[in-house]
Design a protein around this nucleic acid. Structure first.
Lengths: 154, 154
DNA sequence: TCCGGATATGTGCATTATGCACATAGGAGT
DNA sequence: ACTCCTATGTGCATAATGCACATATCCGGA
């Protein structure tokens, strides 16, 4: 079985479709309604702007302000204020960076973890339904190729 | 070759990784720096909030305000204002809906298409480099499975 | 056919979010 | 030690936002 590399023309031909899928995923991931609802059920009402930040801190934390700002596409001063707000709410805590004293790394507290945990549980339930009739190979390939794509994009 | 469906336990096991990839992609797609730079090169400076909207209108247009608002996770009144701004700038135009006179569908103008076209060209160049050493099968599977994923999520 | 409720859009207004200018403190290289 | 770069925070003015309200259209049931 020979290994065939993908040609430029082929990439060009399929890129619009791939890009559309990326946009679609961004749209879905940027929609807060369901997640806000789940948080409300847990007695948590989070300001619109703070929500994505909590998710990112849980995912990428411990993380400094400038790094985090780069990931949400906001000025770092805005993000600094937002993290401070999350800290007030007890959802994240901050500590000095391990190698650089200027850095104030944010990481989720137990309360923050609980909030994102509720979202995780809901996502899991949804995923079970969603992938129920997928072939195992397709699912595994999706996971593998998505990771490969992300690594190629960074 | 028997067709094996994916089991719940397997979905649960791989879901965190898949979710991480989804977050990573959202982060990358939400980063405006490179795109803003490209637009600037084309003599276009677009307000921060308007940019994602232009991309979505190009992708999903013709599209009404409420539908569009749902896709960006904003109040429809905000989006109505933003679309009005894009119209002032000549990047989109609006027309009455074909079946519903209440609807004001937005679609990109030639100027708007030109702007997004510059982004498309840059993306293409980047994609060629990115996928250069991918196997053709992997690339094709990625495109197919991403589309399949999006359809499952909607 | 008519009416009431639902839905699409737009405007005013107060609040929230944001980025820029500036400041302080720490890091790294010469 | 000095200089330049980088991380974070604060003040302030501006931009973006959502809610309350209004008008117009659509649709289903009586």
């Amino acid at each position: 079985m020979s290994i065939k590399k993908v040609h430029n023309a082929h990439i060009r031909a399929l890129l619009p479709e791939l890009h559309r899928s990326l946009i679609d995923i961004t749209v879905i991931m940027n929609q807060p309604e369901r997640d806000v609802e789940l948080l409300a059920k847990a007695g948590l009402s989070l300001e619109r702007a703070l929500f994505p930040l909590l998710v990112l801190i849980e995912r990428f934390g411990p993380i400094g302000v400038v790094d985090l700002a780069g990931r949400v596409g906001r000025d770092y001063t805005t993000v600094s204020r937002q993290v401070a707000r999350l800290e007030e709410l007890g959802l994240v805590t901050r500590r000095a960076g391990s190698t650089d004293k200027r850095i104030r790394e944010a990481l989720v507290t137990a309360a923050g973890k609980e909030a994102t945990g509720a979202l995780d549980a809901a996502r899991e339930e949804m995923a079970i339904g969603m992938f129920a009739d997928w072939e195992r190979k397709d699912f595994d390939d999706l996971v593998r190729l998505m990771r490969k794509l992300v690594e190629a994009m960074y």
